[in-house]
Amino acid sequence: MNLQLSGKLQAPERVKAGESFSVQLLLRHAMETGFISDAQGQRQPQNLIRKIEFFLDDTALLRLTPSSGLAANPYLQISLSIPRSGKLICRWQDEQGAQGELSQKISTT
């Protein structure tokens, strides 16, 4: 399975090099814990987002490894700083192979 997960990435278009700015990420994902049963008593299989990574072009900036403790439809707001202009890319992948990517160009002054 290789579904595109939907989400939204929000970051400023212009920032000062080396100064921190805020990035917001909202993903649509159930984050199935594997602990919940349906009305027939069948356990829903675990399906969590395994990792969420931020890159500036090819340079890795951050890696988040969540567990079942991260709420459904994960929301993340984090401060970042970048030394140069580039494309901020966010990639994520869940346990069933579904993955997604969002990006935004950021120029530094």
Binding site: L61, R63, S68, G69
Partner: peptide, 12 residues
Amino acid sequence: PRPEIFKLEFLQ
């Protein structure tokens, strides 16, 4: 049930 809620690695 899983104590670690998340791990965040700063790669820069």
